[in-house]
Nucleic acid binder design. Structure first.
Lengths: 217, 217
DNA sequence: CGGTTAATTGAACGCATTCAACACGAGTGG
DNA sequence: CCACTCGTGTTGAATGCGTTCAATTAACCG
């Protein structure tokens, strides 16, 4: 990891209008290489991050080695916001990443800034929404439905152009609570039914949206 | 549902120190009978609730009838905080309930934007913690581990006295992402190994804590 | 080209589900 | 007090989905 700017920089500035601006003002720009750890499980949750470029994965390891991927974070997303004083999930760079980081202390110092507080709350809400959706997926969906849901969540918005798959099959499996083999089988099946198409291993295109949505449960 | 006090009561009071105090001051006391709906899926998320007595269950139904229980809320817990403008999960009273309810707008008006955000954020964090734990459980734990984890979460704190099971087997199953039969089998097994003991269907006692924790994964 | 890692495919297994029957408890009325 | 019923929970047997283990293929990079 390389640090471009010093981390602490209160500098007594005025309230920021947007979270992005606050990160720009109070934050430090950081760079992480592919597969580099951003923070570890059980680390102090001191910093709050916003993705500028690249993709980040959060994950948690159980004692006996099983892994659960929490989520994937894309440019604009905020992560590192934790319930307690330490990180329950570790964070790693899926690809080369550029991040903005702010200390919690800085957040507190700038606490008068309504907009900033509001933005953190907004981030917490997004996080809750992701988590609720994830609980429903893991609790009540079949393997096929999970994979279909996952592809939809990646592809939605991107009209019809090919969507990049930033993560490998193992990451997808650990995110969906499946094995890598099952994920592979489901992808093959979806491709066989001409619902999605894989120009390469790391990119796909949705061919039949309604069919995919029907399969997502 | 019966309403003891009017819902809106700004009364120009001072900022509250804690969310609990805010509930005491601004909230309206509400009563719900067993199995009564507190709010429905897709209702406007206008109110925020705190449990005074009784137990509340949140749940979500999929189109084809599968149900996922979000969580169970006990006295002191806050629920109803949602990411978006409407409720993704419905809430029902598991037993006869006494709740304090406040309008979001009331809290914001009375406590000030800052206090409001701080308190809500704190509640959101607790909710996130529950959700993260739930994701790990649903994604990577076996049926036995899920049931053991569930019993532990209910029993922790309560030294060794019998713990009440406020919910039926179906609720437990829908919370753990299992079927009612599987839950029953696991409970029978834990009982057979003298790890827990069931004086009645709706109460249990932990006999061997370390064994139970070992099984929880 | 090899050499290496990631992904797919196949076959056998096992855990949880499904379907079905049975047991238990609480409430009701004879 | 017992018989009846209904809801809830338990138990058994068979099925199936996803896993596991193993082998093969494909992609990537020197």
């Amino acid at each position: 990891m390389t640090l471009a700017y010093p981390l602490s920089d209160p500098r007594g500035a005025r309230p920021a209008a947007t979270l992005a601006e606050t990160f720009e003002r109070l934050g430090a720009r950081m760079h992480f290489a592919r597969d580099e750890e951003i923070y570890a499980q059980d680390d102090d949750a001191d910093l709050l991050f916003q993705v500028v470029s690249g993709v980040v994965r959060t994950s948690r390891l159980t004692a006996d080695g099983r892994r659960q991927v929490g989520d994937f974070y894309y440019p604009g997303d905020i992560f590192g916001l934790e319930p307690g004083p330490d990180h329950r999930f570790a964070a790693e760079a899926l690809s080369a990443c550029e991040l903005m980081a702010v200390r919690r202390a800085s957040v507190r110092a700038a606490a008068g800034e309504f907009e900033f507080n509001r933005a953190i709350l907004e981030a917490a809400r997004q996080e809750m929404e992701r988590l609720q959706e994830h609980v429903l997926l893991l609790g009540r969906k079949s393997a096929c439905e999970r994979v279909a849901s996952f592809l939809i969540s990646l592809a939605q918005g991107r009209s019809d152009g090919p969507v990049e798959l930033s993560m490998g099959r193992q990451d997808i499996a650990d995110y969906l609570g499946l094995t890598i083999e099952t994920v592979s089988r489901m992808l093959t099946r979806l491709q066989g039914e001409a619902i999605v198409e894989f120009p390469s291993l790391r990119a796909f295109r949705v061919r039949r949206w309604t069919a995919l949505e029907a399969l997502a449960g």
